[in-house]
Every structure is written in structure tokens, then in C-alpha cells.
Amino acid sequence: MITGKGITKTFRQRGGMLGAREVPALRGVDFSIEKGGAVSFIGESGCGKTTLGRILAGLESYDSGEIVIDGVPMSSLRPKQRQPHFRRVQLIHQDPYSALNPARTIHQTLDAPLTLRAKQTGRSRSWIDERAEELLGLVGLDPGYVLPRYPHQLSGGMRQRVVIARALTVDPDMLVADEATSMIDVSLRLGILGLLKDLRDRLGVSVLFITHDVATARYIGLDGELYVIYRGQVVERGPVETVISDPVHPYTQSLLSAIPVLHGLEVPGAERVVPTEAIDAAQPDAGCLFAARCPFRTERCTSELPVLGHDGGTLQEHACFHPQRRSVVATPAVAS
């Protein structure tokens, strides 16, 4: 189990004449994922979802807060000692092509981490080859076909499977999949999502899924949790199906309303919230962070900051003074 508590991170941009500008990427985020669990982060670009994923994978520092991996608080360890803990979290990038060395065959790509693994666990050379084939089988690839090939000889979907197989060589507890399906052809996307769900079931690997395509979050498991992040703050959090079908935060509602409706197959939600575009983040931060874009804001929203909770008796947590369910998601059209 991996938990994070009150994680904050601020990036300092080198400014021009006015000096440095501070950009808060995360404003005290709490996070928790069970063994074999699934959590999805959704939000616009720049909301901090990728930063949080990188922090959990040990690739980015954080300013304050605490990360606990299987009961061990990371702050109690020296940086060197943290490494083996963070290694149990593996990152899967958006672009499987740039994540693989084009000059190495898939065999070579898997061989290096497996050799290291064999050394650590005192296993023989033959185990390495067996394990490589086993892992490729696990991600749904034919080892005989894939092993001798170079990345450019594989399709995008196959490459992403190789990247996942490579991440599995170190027996991770958690995979952080950052937009892992957005560059995969539409017809193959479900295959990768299904694989992530399958790995949860079969290996007990937990999956942190970072995406702007909300619908994909459902396919790594309906038992998962959805975090909606806006400007470094979690504004709504709950079971995937609840947040998607009964969103209460106007930001979540805007995001869901923005998803194209497949006219002919679907009917638009009756209460779609016409979303407004992002506003430059350099505005004063008094009150709710979303207030400036929110069509339902009241005076209270501009002076007081709402915190995550179950106000109004909602099933999911939200950070809104006026939580209200709205049917914004398209529903299937009745067959004519």
C-alpha cells in the first residue's frame, strides 16, 4: 500500500525583470492506493497530475508532505535508502517509441534489467531467458516473434506492451501509467487498458492511471477510484462510476461535458455545463480555485477555500460549497 499525505510542490520559474515566478503544482494532496488497487487522476494539462505521478515514482522531489510505502515513511530514510522503495513504483510513459532504445532488440531491452535482477536474487542465466519469455507472454505478446525485433518493427500497441513487460522485470508493486494509451491507435487502446486490469488481477500490481480521457479510467477496473485534480488540488474523489455518472463538482461536470458526444449512438446529457477555457494561473488565489471559471459561483466561493469532504451527504468527496448532481454525461440513444 502506498499513501501520500499533504504533498505540496512548487515550481520556480526564472522570471524576467520581475524576478522569479512561483507556480504551485500541488497544494497539499492526499493519496492512497491499496495493493492491486486502481486510482486514476484526471484533469487538464498543467493541473499537476503528471507531477504527482513522478513524485510517487521517486523521479521528482516534493516540498512538504509524506509518502509512506508499505508502512515505511520516506522522510525517515536517506535518499540512497529510498531508492529500492521507489523502484517498486515503475513509470510507463505516453510515447512507447521514445521509451525504448531504437538500437536494441527487445531481447536486449529486457535482458539488462533481468540480469540485474538475477544477480540480486542469485539466479542463473537460464532464468533470465525464461523470465523474459514469461513476461512477454504475460503482456500478451508472442516471445518468438517479438524478442529478436527492434522497436520500429512493432506496432504502437506492441511497443507499449514491451514497455510494460520491461517495467515488470523488477517485480514492481505499482505501475504509474501516464497517458499510456493516448498515442495508441483507437482500435488497440482497449487492449492496453485490459492488460493493465489483467495485471492487477493476476499479479496484484496496483495501477495509477493518469489521463485526460476520462472514459479510459473505467476500463482498468470499475472498483477503482477517480481523483479529479484542478490546479494542484483534488476537487472531487470517489469510486469511478460514481464520479462519472453523478459528478457534484462543477469542474468535474465541465470536464465530462466537454467529451464529444457520439451523435447517433448517444444523446447529450440534459444539464451539460458549457465549459470555459483555462484562465492564466497567475490570478489571486483567494477562495475556490475554480471560482473564476465556475458558472455557479456565489460570493462565498470567492473568499473562502472549500476543502475535500462529504458535505451534502455525497458518496464521493468533493471540494465545493454547492455540490449538486447534474446529468452531464451522454446516455445511449434508444435504438430506433
Partner: peptide
């Protein structure tokens, strides 16, 4: 292709 699109509603 239509069957392969991740959707917000319906049976996954």
C-alpha cells in the same frame, strides 16, 4: 472501431 472506443456509459 465503435466497439473499441472507451465510453463513459454502458457495459464495459
Amino acid at each position: 472501431l465503435l466497439q473499441a472506443i472507451p465510453r463513459l456509459v454502458g457495459d464495459i
